[in-house]
Write a protein that binds this DNA or RNA. Structure first.
Length: 767
DNA sequence: TCAGCGCATGTTTTT
DNA sequence: CATGCGCTGA
């Protein structure tokens, strides 16, 4: 047995080594301090601190003091965290279970665990690595009684939360128009993030706040009754668990000798309070973050925590990691210049040993389409030079911007992948399937009940449902119990009661039949018994075909699902929790060769050889919504900083003079961020359409051989620019408004209004 | 029960 | 523009 284990370990280890070593070959020279190099050394010496730069070394090997590591983009942040954990275990004999590491995403948690295991060449199962929410969930599962939760409590996602709040507000007779549920959702989550319960809010007679408190309170009650816990509640509840149970808190304070926090700048108030509570004088906390990359303020992250930390831990050592191993000098200097426009920074200046590299290209496009052509053309050039698609990323502020690029990429036959959008566990068919399972696990789960009571249709319409809601509201019981009530007392017409009874029996039967089955069979069985499969099979359009595929995917996901050793609930409960806590599309590192398209937010933590930062226009980026508040504008600037620092070799900044937004074409001004980058780092080009007599020289459409340089050989009639005054033989004087398609131009004439003219026939003369 | 119409709306997103 | 939501009528 021991031998088998040993062999397995070696194989895993060898795989890791060969992986890393092959990466080393592709590393650029001068990448001093990369993990790959160190690994080679370790093969011989296993010295965890070798080849770290001075501040990195200090960050890894500081033992007794608390630590705040300010890690700039590309400065080896994750590497330091991983090394620190390894160092603590190897040099300080820290046991895995004495270490608590908190990350921002599940993906980061997974990555950290894997990297530590690779480095230590052994599994570290007992270590507590996870997101705040994941860890809070784990605490609550263990101490559900002390936390005053039912044993079978379920996690609800924001969508369920939204629906539930809407129902609560309906019960309170609040008009949706006057009291938008979204606002209440926002209110409640904010309060929870601040650690405040409804009973401790004093509204000072403010009617609107009073109403919000009423909703909050009713929502709390229904969650308690249904055994439901939302995301913010996980944190708040875990916090209260410790506050109300000093002995439990003490237990964990003693257990976790070392606490590590990644992405510290993104923590909110309750998360900070949580950490604060857990850290005493006898254990050690190390937080890693970058105040310049704080881009989640809009969802409660509080940068003030960075200052708070310094106040609460006055002896904490502050270490700055400023040497960047990712980008060229030009890119870094541009990033530094841009971010220096922000106030209240902790201060940090990235530098690199690498050379200046190529200048940043700034391209002024005509419109969104031209912008896309330009990008596609540059990507083709890049690949023609022997490089790969997956070294390129197109980044933008808002998801809607992906479309123009997708169309153009598709026409050019360039493989691409769009990140973001609908996530696996958020898809309706998946949520429906999970709702059955949730109801099986806990019949009082109202959101699950509402979702599937008539899905697939079983003759229980709105009237019956609102009846059930009514009874539930009056008697303060769950929908399930209300339904039972109706059946038992025959409160509705016979056919309705029969339908309800059929539903009730269906769920009961499911519960009975799947009880002893392995998880994936439970799911498969449920899918068939529920009629969901049949329902989606009936419809034949493409969308519903993919729904079936997704449901099949769900089954295979359950097949692969394994209980981690720290979970001692039933597999079904564990799976449901994981489905709620994980989005289900962590960006897998893929060897496939495609261009990445994603928002700037999604790009955080990633790096690419070539980065296109699209839509650098006022109103779009910085976004219009951020204009009113300087704080929000600074967050936009940090977002821009994040975008710029994703680029390793080459950065393109793009803006269009005109763009279709919300259905109408608008003239766009270049983003202020462009002007905050010193000219010396920029190389500016712009679209010029040349007109030689009647033909426009615009080759972009078919060949992608788009030329942005002016060709003096042609005899251009004039440069066609937006706003250019022109004269037409028939319509007289006008101004060019826009470029419409390939050969047409939109002109507003003084006497004849707006016309779209074909450039080939309408002989326009410049004025 | 469901299709279809009209209207409002329009960042970022993980948990 | 384009999507999504609520409401209405068959």
């Amino acid at each position: 047995m021991a031998f088998v284990l040993f062999v397995v370990t070696i194989v895993v280890w060898l795989l890791a080594v060969s992986n890393l070593c092959s990466s080393v070959a592709s590393m650029a020279a001068g990448c001093y301090g990369c993990d790959h190099n160190i690994f080679l050394l370790q093969c011989a010496a296993m010295n965890i601190t070798e080849t770290l730069n001075t501040p990195q070394h200090e960050a890894v090997t500081t033992q007794d003091e608390n630590l705040m590591i300010l890690a700039g983009a590309g400065s080896g942040k994750t590497r330091v965290l991983v090394r620190r954990v390894a160092w603590l275990m190897q040099e300080k004999s820290a046991s895995p279970r004495s270490i608590l590491a908190v990350t921002f995403t599940n993906k980061a948690a997974k990555e950290m665990r894997e990297r530590i295991e690779t480095l230590m060449a052994k599994p570290i199962g007992g270590m507590w690595i996870g997101t705040f929410h994941g860890l809070a969930h784990r605490f609550l599962r263990i101490h559900w009684q002390e936390a005053k939760l039912p044993e079978s409590f379920q996690i609800i996602d924001s969508e369920d939360q939204h629906r539930l709040i809407r129902r609560v507000m309906k019960n309170l007779d609040l008009e949706e128009k006057e009291w938008p549920p979204k606002q209440a959702l926002w209110y409640i989550n904010n309060k929870k993030n601040d650690g405040i319960r409804s009973q401790s809010i004093d509204s000072y007679g403010d009617v609107s706040e009073q109403t919000m408190v009423k909703v909050y309170q009713a929502y709390e009650e229904i969650c308690q009754r249904n055994g439901l816990v939302d995301f913010a509640e996980l944190l708040l509840c875990a916090h209260e668990l410790w506050l109300n149970n000093p002995q439990i808190l003490q237990h964990y304070q003693q257990q976790f000798k070392y606490i590590l926090v990644d992405e510290f700048q993104d923590t909110n108030d309750i998360q900070y309070a949580w950490l604060r509570l857990l850290t005493t004088t006898t254990n050690n906390i190390a937080v890693v973050g970058d105040d310049d990359q704080s881009i989640y303020g809009w969802r409660g992250a509080n940068m003030e925590n960075v200052h708070r930390f310094q106040h609460d831990f006055p002896n904490a050592k502050i270490i700055r990691l400023e040497q960047n191993y990712r980008s060229t000098g030009n890119i870094l200097k541009a990033a530094n210049a841009l971010i220096s426009c922000n106030s209240n920074r902790l201060g940090k200046n990235l530098w690199t040993q690498a050379g200046n590299g190529e200048a940043i290209s700034l391209y002024a496009a005509f419109n969104g389409r031209d912008e896309a052509y330009f990008v596609v053309n540059k990507i083709l050039n890049w690949v023609q030079q022997g490089n790969k698609y997956n070294e390129c990323a197109i980044l933008y502020r808002a998801n809607a911007q992906s479309r123009a690029f997708e169309e153009t990429l598709m026409r050019a036959n360039i493989p691409y992948r769009v990140y973001g959008g609908m996530r696996f566990f958020e898809r309706a068919e998946i949520k429906n399937a999970l709702a059955y399972l949730r109801l099986v696990a806990n019949e009082n789960d109202d959101p699950a009940f509402e979702r599937i009571i008539n899905m697939p249709a079983r003759g229980i319409g709105n009237t019956s449902l609102s009846n059930i809601r009514q009874i539930a509201k009056e008697q303060n019981i769950s929908l399930w119990q209300a339904m039972k009530n109706i059946i038992d007392n025959k409160l509705r017409p016979a056919h309705t009661c029969n339908a309800l009874l059929a539903f009730l029996n269906l769920i009961k039967r499911m519960r009975l039949e799947i009880k002893e089955l392995p998880l994936h069979e439970q799911v498969e069985h449920t899918l068939h018994l529920s009629g969901l499969i049949k329902h989606y099979q009936k419809e034949k359009n493409n969308k519903d075909l993919s729904r079936i595929e997704n449901l099949e995917e769900l089954v295979s996901a359950t097949k692969e699902f394994t209980l981690s050793e720290d979970e001692d609930t039933s597999p079904l409960m564990a799976f449901l929790a994981r489905a709620a806590l994980e989005s289900g599309n962590d960006k897998e590192e893929s060897t496939d060769n495609f261009v990445s398209l994603m928002t700037l937010h999604a790009a955080k933590g990633l790096e690419f050889q070539v980065v296109f930062l699209a839509g650098m226009e006022e109103g779009l980026f910085p976004h219009q919504m951020s204009f009113d508040k300087p704080q929000r504008l600074e967050e936009e600037r940090r977002l821009c900083y994040v975008g710029i620092t994703r680029a390793m070799q080459k950065l393109y900044l793009l803006h269009a003079n005109s763009r279709i937004l919300y259905g109408s074409e608008r003239r766009q001004k270049p983003s202020r961020f462009i002007y905050e980058i010193p000219d010396e780092h920029l190389e500016k080009t712009s679209a010029k359409i040349k007109i030689a007599s009647t033909t426009i020289r615009r080759k972009a459409t078919s060949t992608f051989n788009y030329s942005t340089t002016i060709n003096p050989e042609v005899n251009p009639a004039f440069d066609l620019k937006l706003g250019q005054p022109v004269e037409h033989a028939k319509f007289g004087e006008g101004v060019i408004l826009n470029f419409d398609g390939d050969n047409r131009v939109q002109v507003r004439f003084k006497k004849h209004g707006i016309k779209v003219l074909s450039l080939e026939y309408a002989k326009l003369k410049p004025l």
